[in-house]
Structure formats: C-alpha cells, structure tokens
Simulated assay, not measured.
Amino acid sequence: MSRKRGSRWLPDQHGAWAMLAVPFAAGTFLGSPRRAHLPLLAAWLLGYMATYHAQQWLRLRRVSRNPRAPRRHIRPALTFAAGFAALGIPLAVAYPWLLLACAAAAPFVLANTYYAWRNKERALLNGLLAVVPACGMLLVTYRLGEGSWGAWAPALACLLYFAGTVPYVKTMIRERNSRAYYRGSVAYHAAALAAATLLNPWLALPFTAYLVRAAVLPGRGVKVPVVGALEVMGSLALLATVLAVSL
C-alpha cells in the first residue's frame, strides 16, 4: 500500500485512537494479559476502521455530488471488515460471550451511523455516544483475562474522562467562541472531578488537571496540534493512574 493510499485508508479522527487504546490497555493490564488479547486488539481496530469507512460511504452518498467521493471508502471498508471477520469469528467461537459485548455496543454504533448519514458527526451527542462502547472495551479485555466483569470502577473513570474530552475539544476548536459550551464543559469537569474522587481519591490528581485545562485553555489561541498533544498526555495520565491504584 502506498503512503498516499495508506493516509486515505487510516481514519483522520486522531482523538479516537487514544479512546480506542487506553480502555483496552487498562482492562488488559488490570487483569491477566493473554495471547487472545492480541487478535482481539487487531479485531477491535479493524472493526473501528471498517465502521468508519462504511459510515463515510453512507454520508458521502447522501451529501456529495462527486460520485467518486463515496466510492473511495468501499475498498477499505470491505478490506477492514474482512480482516475483522477473519479474527473476530474465531474469537467468538472461543469466547461466545464476546457476542453479548458486540450486541451491547451495537445500538451505539447504529446511532453513530445515523449521525454520519445525517452529516452530523460533529454533534455533541454523537461524540458522547461513541465514548460508551470504547470505554466498555475495558470490561471486555478484563473479562478476557480474569473471567469476570469486575472492572466497573476503572471503566467509569475512563468514561468520565473521555466524555469530558468531547465538549472540551469543541471549546478549543469548533465552539471556541461559545460561552455556553465553555460553561458546560467546566461544569462537567467539576462534576467529573467529584465523581472520580468518589471512585478513588487518587483520581483527583488527573481529574483536577483536566478541570484546570478545561477552565484555563479555551480562548488562549492554543494550536490544534498542541491540543492533540495535551489530550494524549491526559490519556496517558489516566492510564497510569488507573493501573497504579488498581481500582
């Protein structure tokens, strides 16, 4: 695959990669890492990329006047879907409960697909809906290693953080001039700090930092790459804290 084609095949939703990786890694290492986690990780990423291209195909069929625009998503969607099936079917045979996890995630994926079809992918609710199955993956990877669903506290911690990134990033980019978004983001982060502290007092450390950045950085002209880098650091801080305190 050429570099140019590779860049077209990889989704450009950069914030999604941390949301896909951190809960997966947290659940894996809070439990007992197994060889099955590797094909599960590959299937997880392939499934995300297949879904992304399928949604873009639907969206562009509806809104684009250029017939080539939706077509360029067909090959990557089919390729990634085939890879997902090749890895996912054996996993489902070995661990049938994974089908229940897929069923639980399906309504959220369908809702995201609907928003894509309506060309409203940037809607606040759409972003929040995408966070739920991503954070739920922590429960799946923990279950794969430990045989139980006993990782609800770290999953909730991830949900609190990644849900907060949705309004916060909007205050930094698309809604940077909206006082309503700013007030809503700060209020959410204050509530998230209180809730995270109830889960574990050590979580107050990263969540205080998240509240400060939500209150201080909007309106200061921070460049988009810096916003992205700060969110990567925030994601890693969450992962390190969750693993260190073993919620």
Score class of each variant (00 low, 15 high):
Pro11Arg: 03
Ser185His: 00
Ala209Asp: 10
Pro39Ile: 07
Phe80Ser: 03
Leu239Thr: 01
Val186Ser: 05
Ala82Leu: 14
Ala86Asp: 09
Pro76Gly: 06
Trp17Lys: 02
Leu211Phe: 04
Leu239Tyr: 08
Trp152Phe: 15
Leu30Gln: 05
Leu38Tyr: 13
Pro225Ile: 03
Ala94Arg: 15
Phe162Ile: 09
Val93Phe: 13
Asn200Lys: 09
Ala229Phe: 14
Gly150Asn: 15
Trp57Pro: 01
Val216Phe: 03
Leu20Cys: 04
Thr165Asp: 06
Thr28Gly: 03
Tyr48Gly: 03
Ser178Val: 05
Ala101Pro: 10
Leu78Gly: 11
Tyr95Gln: 10
Ala204Arg: 07
Leu198Cys: 12
Gly27His: 06
Tyr95Asn: 08
Glu146Tyr: 04
Ala116Pro: 05
Leu129Glu: 03
Gly47Asn: 05
Leu87Ala: 12
Leu78Glu: 10
Gly83Arg: 06
Arg143Cys: 15
Pro90Glu: 02
Gly27Trp: 05
Leu156Val: 13
Lys170Gln: 12
Ala116Glu: 06
Ala209Ser: 11
Gly6Gln: 14
Gly219Cys: 04
Ala25Pro: 02
Leu238Val: 03
Trp152Met: 14
Ala190Trp: 08
Gly27Gln: 00
Trp149Leu: 15
Tyr95Arg: 12
Val242Glu: 00
Gly228Val: 04
Ala214Gly: 06
Phe207Thr: 00
Ala69Asp: 14
Asn200Cys: 04
Ala190Lys: 04
Lys120Asp: 13
Val216Arg: 12
Asn200Thr: 06
Thr79Lys: 12
Leu38Lys: 11
Asn177Val: 13
Val216Ser: 09
Leu20Trp: 01
Ala36Ile: 14
Pro167Ala: 08
Leu236Ser: 08
Ser246Asn: 15
Asn112Val: 11
Ile173Thr: 15
Ala196Ile: 01
Arg179Tyr: 08
Ser246Tyr: 14
His37Arg: 02
Gly6Glu: 13
Tyr182Ile: 09
Gly15Asp: 07
Thr208Val: 10
Leu45Met: 13
Thr141Trp: 09
Tyr95Lys: 11
Arg5His: 11
Ser148Glu: 14
Ala54Asp: 13
Ile173Asp: 13
Ala237Arg: 11
Ala123Met: 09
Val222Ala: 10
Gly221Asn: 14
Arg72Asp: 10
Gly184Ala: 08
Ala21Tyr: 09
Leu45Pro: 07
Ser235Asn: 04
Ala18Arg: 01
Leu58Tyr: 10
Trp149His: 12
Leu99Ile: 12
Ala104Arg: 02
Ala116Gly: 07
Leu243Ser: 08
Ser235Arg: 08
Ala21His: 09
Val216Gly: 06
Leu239Val: 00
Ala103Ile: 07
Leu41Ser: 04
Ser185Ala: 12
Leu203Asp: 03
Val224Gln: 15
Pro218Thr: 06
Ala163Thr: 06
Val132Phe: 11
His14Glu: 14
Ile89Glu: 07
Ala86Trp: 11
Pro133Val: 00
Leu238Met: 07
Thr241Trp: 01
